[in-house]
């Protein structure tokens, strides 16, 4: 668990979220890479946004920060795709198909959060009650032909990551 400074769900730690316009896929991947570097291979990141909003594209950017070059397959069917690079261990979750958060127990979800790893979680609402408080929640919405990203911190660590991210933008 990474919720070192636990804050009740729905209450953000930082008053100012990080907000950014991402004109196209290239910009989305580039921003993901910056976010990946700011996370430094550790933490719990929730990715919010409807179908086709670019959550997996964002994850591809995050993974590229750790030197992952190959395919980033959607974990919708497998629920989680693990990545181990020289600099980090990243778990990419997609809870889209979960019917009940309790199903997470059957897949041994707790083990993933005990490690020193970065857990990127799509459709986190499906795991409400079982998932830990995220360090950061990133919400993607449609903005013209591109996307808008909004990031909110829920823990001290999340706030530190956002502070680090601001210096990169």
């Amino acid at each position: 668990m990474t919720s070192d400074a636990f804050v009740s769900a729905g209450q953000s730690l930082q008053a100012d979220p990080v907000q950014i316009q991402l004109a196209d896929e290239v910009a989305q991947v580039a921003f993901g890479e910056q976010l990946g570097r700011a996370c430094n291979g550790e933490g719990v990141l929730f990715l919010q946004g409807t179908l086709g909003m670019g959550k997996t594209t964002m994850t591809r950017g995050i993974l590229s920060a750790y030197g992952h070059q190959g395919a980033v397959k959607s974990p919708t069917y497998t629920l989680v795709e693990p990545y181990e690079t020289e600099t980090a261990r990243v778990y990419h979750f997609d809870l889209y198909r979960l019917a009940d958060a309790e199903e997470l127990e059957y897949m041994g979800i707790r083990d993933y959060f005990d490690e020193k790893a970065l857990c990127v979680i799509e459709w986190p609402d499906k795991g409400a009650g079982v998932l830990p408080t995220p360090d950061i929640e990133l919400t993607l919405t449609k903005e013209g032909d591109g996307r808008a990203a909004s990031l909110v911190a829920f823990t001290v660590k999340g706030a530190e990551i956002l502070a680090q991210l601001r210096t990169m933008l």
Binding site: L51, T56, A71, K73, S74, T76, Y77
Partner: peptide, 16 residues
């Protein structure tokens, strides 16, 4: 596939 599988595309298109 470098991203979504074909079956997943069917599932998500259906949802939409």
């Amino acid at each position: 596939s470098i991203d979504d599988a074909a079956g997943e595309a069917f599932d998500k298109a259906a949802k939409m």
